[in-house]
Amino acid sequence: MLNEIQYLISLDRPPFEKGKIIILKRSNGYETHWSYVSGEEESLETLYSGPELERAWLAAEATRQARCRDGFRLQTPHITFYLSAIPKPFLTVRKLECFCSKHHDANLFQELREWRRTASNAAKVPPYFIGTDRLLSIIAALVPQKEEELLQIPGIGQTKLDSYGQEILKITNKYPQIYSFPLDWIQRKVSEEELATWLLEDKIKREERHQVRMKQELEEKRQMLEAIEDQISIGNILDKMSLTMVQFLKRIRELSRDGYDVLPYLQQEVERIKEKDQIVDLVSSLGNERLKPIFEKLYGSMEELPRDEKGEKYNHIRLVCTYLQIQSAA
């Protein structure tokens, strides 16, 4: 039974050949088809049929690339559809992202990613707070050499320039600058067809990454359920699965929402925390939206405390808060 069309694009090859790549969602899985029309001749080729959406997308993308190499071109409705969703003020930014994704220096991009990892650890913020992969790709393509060039890059304002500008320039100054500033040439360099195709490819890649993440999360949940059943301590689970406490507790809350009884295991782990009663009382009076007030009431500011020890105490508070949340929802 056909539930919906997941994906459809039309291609043509003058003077009279036309084709469509289609992904269908059915009750038992997915199908990818290539529909071809030449004159009065019409054929339908099944490229994939099975339970995995990821493989259906891969079959569609491989076919699109192969047909374009054979001279087929995406039809205008495809371009109009993908560009219509972009507000005009952002069209230049999307063209810039498109160009830089294809022309960045791979070595510089990797060096920027390594710098970002160090900077995010030092600032105790997620890496994307420092800069997304897309922003690093733009920097690695345009290779700014001075502050005024950095400020022309979307995503870098004065605050980010003040915080990280000199560190970024210290890296980019080691590489040659191929493309010029200002960046008004981008509008002419990237055609609407190229942009629309890139947006479609980016959508497929994001869907593939989403599918990979879903599989990883399912595997993590399976491992966690086995570990909980075997009464393995949280510390050992974190080491075995290479998780942080925040990631572990997120998975625990998901398991609880899915109907798994994780309370007995959490209660057992909470009982090992000697300050658990004080934490419970403070959560009752202060709430659990912010952990710092609870921490300071328990331990003071403790600015001189080693990072690992401070992190462990915060994790105790996180664990108790999660236990109380799940308990109240039960």
Rank of each mutant, 00 (worst) to 15 (best):
L58K: 12
V246P: 13
M302G: 00
L225D: 06
T76V: 14
G157K: 03
E309S: 08
S284C: 05
D230Y: 12
E217P: 11
K203L: 00
A196G: 01
L142N: 03
E229H: 15
R64N: 09
R13Y: 12
R64D: 12
D308R: 15
L249C: 02
L24A: 03
E296C: 00
E207G: 04
L255M: 09
L161P: 02
N236V: 15
K25V: 05
R307Y: 15
D281W: 14
R206K: 15
L161Y: 09
A66S: 10
M214W: 14
P51I: 07
S285K: 15
H316L: 08
K170T: 14
H104D: 00
H103A: 02
S180G: 09
S256A: 12
S242D: 15
E303K: 13
R251P: 15
Y179F: 05
P182G: 00
W185N: 01
E31Q: 11
G300C: 06
P77L: 07
K313S: 03
E148L: 05
L53Q: 04
R222M: 08
V190Q: 01
I279W: 11
L183A: 05
P87C: 02
I294H: 14
Y82N: 08
E4L: 06
A122R: 11
A85Q: 15
M214S: 13
W115R: 09
D281L: 14
E4N: 10
L44Q: 07
K221W: 14
T76L: 12
T80Y: 06
E42Y: 11
E275V: 15
Q247P: 12
R67I: 06
C98T: 07
I21P: 02
C98G: 01
E111V: 05
P127Q: 03
E275G: 10
S49Q: 08
S137I: 02
N173S: 09
I234N: 00
K189Y: 13
F16M: 06
R206P: 13
K310W: 10
V190H: 06
V125H: 05
D281I: 15
E289P: 03
K174Y: 11
V246L: 08
N3V: 11
E61T: 06
G131V: 04
Y175Q: 05
D12P: 10
D162A: 05
N315R: 10
E254Y: 14
L11H: 08
T80S: 04
A141P: 07
